[in-house]
């Protein structure tokens, strides 16, 4: 450490972070391309909407898994909580989507804050059990309190137009996709900013070696709690979006397969660079849609096969593959460290 000249170090670090935080043209193109697909394929708006929401959910997992190295098998807990919060608000007659979205994220964040201390104890295996347990408990709570949640029958409700202008529903599928796109983009921008701030660097240090990070003077517990709460809020927002754009919630939102699917998406796309969740979500859902249209009974077999091949083809390269792809398509940007 150049303790003799801390201000020079800080200046260099700040310059470095600012350089990294700049938007590169491949990223801008990426977002424009999504917008273009929404407008070019209006008949597929519903599935695009699902991809965007799954992408936001995977982004949320990337915040804890990719940035801070915290594994979770119960991320659906926050997703379901956000969905139910938005749904219950709407079913009580307060149908404004923006309000529901904020409430969904807030409720999930509070739940994240309440359960985060559990994550500070124990290692990965303990965390897997704890997160899984929390999501099972919430699922059963939703089941037991049918007067509020509709129980196993689910809850149907209607939703007001977004910002009072854009109706969403069967005739407003593109509006739904655009609404999800806008929310995803805003939240992604914030996440990107977070990842490239000193806070993000501290998380990277914790991910690599928590003991050493602590020895460097980083308050690791507070950092972990902070990112966990942010990730929970993101998952809650994704859940609220799904509830609002489909106008139904049911107990399967808390199912284990939701947590597992989002983990798969992130693994397919690669963790740690934020775009992985979005790429993985599109790959997973489009693949599922195409295969299950061809063989509705046995699509799980083909998805499984695809995953096995993906892993065998290069287990250590899974995280690297999308970066290489970017490097292949846009070598200059990759060198500068977009990814």
């Amino acid at each position: 450490m150049s303790a003799a000249n801390p201000s020079a170090t800080t200046r260099r670090l700040a310059a470095h972070l600012n350089r990294r935080a700049r938007w590169r043209w491949p990223e801008i193109l990426f977002w424009l391309a999504i917008l273009a697909v929404i407008f070019a394929a209006p008949s597929r708006a519903a599935i695009i909407n699902e991809v965007l929401i799954a992408g936001l959910f995977a982004l949320s997992l990337d915040l804890i898994l990719g940035l801070a190295g915290i594994v979770s098998l119960g991320h659906a807990a926050f997703f379901g909580l956000g969905a139910y919060a938005a749904a219950i608000l709407a079913s009580k007659g307060i149908a404004d989507p923006t309000l529901g979205l904020v409430l969904g994220a807030a409720v999930a964040a509070v739940a994240g804050l309440a359960t985060a201390p559990l994550l500070l104890r124990g290692a990965d295996l303990t965390r897997l059990m704890v997160t899984l347990g929390v999501s099972l408990m919430l699922g059963e709570l939703a089941n037991r309190n049918g007067w509020l949640t509709g129980g196993a029958d689910g809850l149907n409700f209607s939703i007001a137009p977004v910002l009072g202008l854009f109706p969403i529903g069967f005739t407003g599928q593109r509006n739904a996709a655009l609404y999800s796109f806008a929310v995803l983009f805003i939240l992604f921008t914030i996440a990107r900013r977070l990842a490239q701030s000193p806070f993000g660097l501290a998380l990277a240090a914790i991910r690599e070696n928590r003991l050493r990070a602590g020895a460097l003077g980083i308050d690791t517990s507070r950092r972990i709690i902070a990112i966990y709460v942010v990730a929970a809020a993101y998952a809650g927002a994704a859940g609220a979006l799904l509830a609002q754009t489909t106008q139904i919630v049911s107990l399967d939102l808390f199912d284990f397969h939701r947590s597992a699917d989002v983990m798969l998406m992130l693994i397919i796309g690669g963790a740690g660079y934020l775009y992985g969740g979005l790429i993985g979500a599109s790959a997973f859902i489009v693949l599922r849609d195409v295969i299950s249209a061809a063989t509705p009974e046995y699509w799980e077999f083909w998805i499984g096969l695809a995953l096995v091949i993906l892993v065998l083809a290069g287990r250590e390269r899974i995280g690297e593959a999308p970066r290489r792809l970017i490097a292949f398509f846009a070598p200059r940007a990759a060198r500068r460290g977009v990814a």
Binding site: P26, L29, A33, A41, I279, S282, V290, A293, A330
Partner: peptide, 15 residues
């Protein structure tokens, strides 16, 4: 680079 998104879009349309 935008081939990525275009390919996904095409897959959606084809379906």
């Amino acid at each position: 680079f935008s081939l990525l998104a275009a390919a996904l879009g095409a897959a959606l349309l084809a379906a």
